[in-house]
C-alpha cells in the first residue's frame, strides 16, 4: 500500500524574517471552507432586502436554521444566554462543513490537532473570561480551592484537561475516519471501490461528522454556561 496518504502535507513555505512557515493542506482546506461560508453569508445578506413578512422558499430555510440555533443555545445554556447563538452557530457550521469536507475529497481540517485545539482553546478562554466576568475575580479564584484547599492542584489539572479532551475527541474521531477511508481507497482491488465507499462515507463522514460537531458545540456550551453559574 505505497499510495496510502492521509497525512497533512506541507505545500509551500512562507518566509517571514528568519522564520519559515509552511502552508499546509489544513490551511488551504480551511480557507476553502471559509470561502464557502463567506459566499453563503453574502448570498443571505443580499437576499435580506427581499425578505417578506410571510416567509417562503429560501427565506424559510434560513429562518429555520437561525431558529434552530437559537432554540438549541437557549435550551443548553439557559434563556438568558441566548446571545451566544450567533457565535456557536458559526462554530457549528464551520465544524460541520470541515467534518463533511471528506465527502468531496478534501482532507478534513478537523483531522489536524492544530484546528481542533484552537477551537477548544476558544472555549477554554471563554470559560475563564466569563467565569471571572459573571462571578468576580475573588469567587473565581476561590473556586479553585473548593471543596477543600488541598485539592487546588487537581482543580487546575482538571481545568487544563478540558480543552485537551475536547480537542482530541473531535480530532481522534475525524482522523480515524480519514485513515479508514484512505486505507480503503489505497486497496488494489478496483471492485471494492464501487458503491461500498458510499456506506463507509455515510458512517465515518456523515454520521460521525455530524455527531462530533453536535457534541463539540454542546460540550463547549455546557462548559461556558456552567462557568457562568459559578
Amino acid at each position: 500500500m505505497e499510495n496510502l496518504d492521509f497525512y497533512n502535507h506541507n505545500i509551500f513555505p512562507i518566509q517571514i524574517g528568519d522564520n519559515q512557515f509552511w502552508i499546509t493542506t489544513t490551511i488551504v482546506n480551511t480557507w476553502i471552507i471559509m470561502g464557502v461560508l463567506f459566499v453563503f453569508a453574502i448570498i443571505v445578506r443580499l437576499s435580506l432586502k427581499k425578505f417578506e413578512d410571510i416567509p417562503k422558499g429560501f427565506q424559510n430555510v434560513i429562518e429555520a436554521i437561525v431558529d434552530i440555533f437559537y432554540s438549541f443555545t437557549s435550551s443548553t445554556m439557559g434563556e438568558k444566554n441566548k446571545g451566544f447563538a450567533p457565535f456557536y452557530g458559526s462554530m457549528f457550521l464551520f465544524i460541520l462543513l470541515a467534518n463533511l469536507s471528506g465527502l468531496v475529497g478534501l482532507r478534513p481540517p478537523t483531522a489536524d490537532i492544530a484546528t481542533t485545539l484552537s477551537l477548544a482553546l476558544m472555549t477554554f478562554f471563554m470559560v475563564q473570561g466569563y467565569g471571572i466576568k459573571s462571578n468576580g475575580i475573588g469567587k473565581y479564584i476561590k473556586g479553585f480551592f473548593e471543596p477543600i484547599p488541598f485539592l487546588f492542584p487537581l482543580n487546575v489539572i482538571g481545568e487544563l484537561a478540558n480543552p485537551v479532551s475536547l480537542s482530541f475527541r473531535l480530532f481522534g474521531n475525524i482522523l480515524g475516519g480519514t485513515i479508514i477511508m484512505a486505507l480503503w481507497y489505497s486497496m488494489p482491488w478496483i471492485a471494492l471501490k464501487i458503491g461500498l465507499p458510499a456506506v463507509l462515507h455515510a458512517y465515518f463522514d456523515v454520521f460521525a461528522g455530524v455527531l462530533q460537531t453536535f457534541i463539540f458545540v454542546m460540550l463547549s456550551m455546557t462548559f461556558v454556561s456552567s462557568a457562568m453559574e459559578g
Partner: peptide, 20 residues
C-alpha cells in the same frame, strides 16, 4: 438522546487518550 450523547462523549475521553 441529548443527555445520552453528552455522557457518551465524556465516557469516550480515556479511549481517545489511548488512541493518541
Amino acid at each position: 438522546v441529548r443527555t445520552m450523547l453528552l455522557g457518551q462523549a465524556v465516557a469516550q475521553t480515556t479511549g481517545i487518550y489511548a488512541l493518541v
